[in-house]
Design a protein around this nucleic acid. Structure first.
Lengths: 190, 190
DNA sequence: TCAAAACATGAATAAATATTCATATTTTTA
DNA sequence: TAAAAATATGAATATTTATTCATGTTTTGA
């Protein structure tokens, strides 16, 4: 039954992300993942051949779900709007589930990552680079090395979402999304 | 003999950082650290009681060497100069040795970190917050939530240094330091 | 110069953790 | 509804990796 399998996979992935948020990839144990997912450790091996396969599957899924997924639906819009939409979705999603960043960042350089998954990472950065280059041509964006701009954008959003998640009190309101984007946009606009 | 001990500790720490850059904290093995440091694995246990102790000692050392170390020598200067000096030192050091960031970030949430080391992390962020608050009072800096500003600064410098290190060709010239700081300063100045 | 102390080695052992598998339970199908 | 198939269990086993220790080497100090 597909729904059940999907439910289980979800259970396992959620448990893995939660644990990664607490103990990092270094601290991930199959037995703990099973406990967190409320299943027996043997059950994990019905769904994944090994720990390595489990983590690679999760990495793949997260990459596919992140910002690149909406690229096609917004590529006809003006650049600052595209950036705003991406910012909004990315920040909301990252705050909802900050474990994603931790998992993605740590797994990217872990010894378990597969070659296929390594390449996924590069695609989104290319999209962003093209978007910024276009913005420069249209005189909307500072004529500065794209990598510097990308570092500012990605570094800011990652660090800010991590902060928001770590502070139990703070909730991500639309106001905060808008203010943080304004700060980002002011930094890069011409 | 103190010099020799220091030399060995350095050897071990350097090896650990290099390996962390390659395989993350998740991939660190004592045997590999020993191999990378060109010593026998048993030798590690002459200098450290355990892996846990080794990693905590390294974390402590890195924290103490990073930006906070220069705080006292510059605190009398104007705010934008203080920030520029910190930016310069931090970016140079991070690029020289990007493994530091990876190690610091990953170890901070690993299960091996001690409580003492966890607290170290908080100190620098407090210093930066105070500096920014002062800047706001002096009307130099945008009157925006400090955490948002800090996220932009720290996120940008971390991500940019990581980028510089990963691109074999690119070298961190003074010009790049100045340009990146300019971008950062424009983003936060009033 | 030589014995004692300190330091270093890496194979052997212990500890931690991934994985298997005999058994039990649930779901599917005819 | 009952047998077959699929799914689940967790103690037992295999594997990986940290740590020890008997032995060898270098350094120190009288």
């Amino acid at each position: 039954m597909i729904e059940k399998t999907e439910y289980r996979l979800n259970q396992i992935f959620t448990a893995t992300l939660n644990l990664t948020g607490k103990v990092g990839i270094a601290g991930l144990k199959m037995s703990d993942i099973a406990k967190e997912a409320k299943i027996a450790s043997g059950t994990l091996y019905i769904y994944f051949k090994s720990k390595e396969e489990l983590l690679n599957a999760l990495y793949y899924k997260l990459q596919r779900e992140s910002a690149p997924a909406i690229v096609d639906t917004i590529s006809h819009l003006p650049i600052n709007i595209q950036l705003y939409k991406m910012w909004h979705i990315a920040l909301k999603r990252l705050v909802e589930d900050n474990m994603r960043i931790i998992f993605l960042e740590q797994f990217l350089i872990s010894p378990l990552i597969s070659d296929t998954n390594k390449n996924l990472d590069i695609k989104f950065k290319n999209y962003l680079k093209e978007l910024l280059d276009k913005g420069k041509k249209e005189n909307l964006i500072k004529d500065i090395d794209s990598q510097m701009l990308i570092s500012l954008i990605i570094g800011f959003i990652r660090t800010y979402s991590t902060y928001l998640v770590n502070e139990k009190e703070s909730i991500l309101t639309d106001d905060l999304v808008d203010k943080s984007f304004a700060l980002c946009w002011q930094a890069i606009e011409k």
